[in-house]
Structures are given as structure tokens and as C-alpha cells.
Amino acid sequence: MAWSTTTWVMAALAPIIVFLAGHLFLGIARKITARIHRRRGPPVMQQFIDVFKLFGKRTSTTHSWVQDMGALFAVIGVIACSLFIPIGGDPVLSFQGDVIVLVYLLAIAPLGMALGTGSTGNPNSAIGVSRGLMLMLAYELPFAIVIVTIIVHFKTASLGEIVEAQKGFLDWAILSLPLSAIAADLSLQGMLGEKPFDQPVAPSEVASGPMVEFGGKYLGMLMIWHAMSVVVEAGLFVNLFLGGGVLFGGGTTLALIGNIFVWLALTLTVFIFSIFINSVFGRFKMGQALKFYWGFPTLIALIGLSIAVLSNLGVF
């Protein structure tokens, strides 16, 4: 498969766009949370400042090379993910079935963190990691059903083609599959690790869980991972349900740049909605989170799937 120049440029730019957007989004989120708290909040650029500060620090302790690898693993995993996400309707890597690959890839970065924290020997990290994996089990069930629904609905398993199929505003999957969209958004809340599903990093329970033994550059890497995964995961929702931000047709470079900005705006909207939920709810216990995910979201995801299957068969 020969790549065009645009694809090469996008392959280089995609991780950078995701990196910059991620930190900007988190900065905006901090500002919004502060406003709901009735505080003024840090500057929007605070996330960049924090990450650069952390990389300027020297690391005082590291437990083993596994920990080093773990943090690196998380960052590399999320960079790989960013290549699969169509930014502005133009995926770098696109093939039949890339949605499924992406869902697997999304799990790699948390696994990398689990690997790194597992080697530190801190019981808080161990509990945090086990909670994280349990939470993954919880939200992946409705999310997997939603993915199947999307594949059935658009009759394709390629993200590029899914975005292509939602060209017009009325073709957006959020309108044709509203129940699945709700289920996906609830799963997204757990995926992003926002309340009420932030059990893995709960400060008042496990002292920030996996991050507890990470400092300096390691913490910086985890922060980069978190910022980038925010964009990748919220962006995945945009691509699946909100048409992938393809507003300008024509395929020119200018249209692509415009589409990228539309995509970023939509992603930010999805993320801010999640931040709203985050700042008005407390945290569930682990068992309650499992019960929640395997109840309501799974149920409506299944209903959405059956509607999609039946309409495909021509019943409606």
C-alpha cells in the first residue's frame, strides 16, 4: 500500500496533534472544574508547564527496568492508537477491521502501566492496578457490544469507512443509534477514568493507586499517556457517533486542516461533557461500578444492537 504525501504528513503529525490537544484539553478541563468549584483555577497552559517541569526533574528512585519499560509502554501504546484514529476524517492506518485492532490497542497502554506498577511492590499500586483491570472488564462489555452494533449498522469494520458513511449531519450514528451512543458515552466515562469511575486512582482510598511510586520523568510519561488517551478515546467516540468531524469536503489540504479543527472541537465537547459528570458526582465503589456497567449500559447497548440487527434484516 503506497502512502500519499498527505498520509505521510499525517502520520508524523497525528501524535503531535494528539499530544498538544490532550494537554490543552486537560488544561481547559482544569479551568472548567475550577469554575464549578468556584475557584479561579490554574492557567490553561498549566498541563504543559507540569509535564515539562516533570521532565526537567531527576528521578530519585526506580525499582527495576520493568518500571521504566512500563511507563514507556503506556506512551508508545497511546501513540500507536493515535495513528489509527481518523483525525479530520483521514486515518493514517486504515484497513478492514481496524476498529477491533484499536480496541485491543487501547488496552495495551493500561496494561503497560500495570506492568510498571506491578514491579514497584507498593500495595497501593497493586490494588490500584487490580481495580483498573477490573474496571476495564466492566466498561469493555457494553463498549464491545456498541462496537459490534456500529459494525452491523455501517456494514464495515474500518474506521475510515465508518467516518465516510457519516458524511451528512443526518447520517450521524448518534441519531440513528441513540441508545448505543448513550452506552458508549457511559463506557467512555470509565475509559477516561473520570468520576464516578476513577477507582483505580482514587486518592482517598489507594493514594493515587498506580501513580504512587512514579515520580519525575515517569510521572511525566504517565501524564502524557493520560493526556493523549483522553483525545484518542473521546476522539474515538466522535468518529463512531459524531461523524468524525468531516465538515468540509473536496479533499484539499485546506479542507483537511478545517476538518481537523472541527474534529478537535467535537472531541473537546465530548470530553467537557465527561468533565461535567466528573465534577458533580462522587466515586462508586468497585463493586458498584461493575454492577452499574453490567446493568444499565449493557442493557441499552444490547437493545441498540438488536435494533441495528433487525433494521439490517429489513424488519423496520
Binding site: H37, R38, K195, D198, P203, S204, G282, R283
Partner: peptide, 13 residues
């Protein structure tokens, strides 16, 4: 109490 369940809006208020 708000802080203990992660609802940081309440302690701030």
C-alpha cells in the same frame, strides 16, 4: 465527606 468520595466540588464550596 465530599473529599472522601471524590466529590471535590463540595469541599471547595
Amino acid at each position: 465527606l465530599g473529599g472522601a468520595i471524590g466529590l471535590y466540588t463540595l469541599p471547595m464550596w
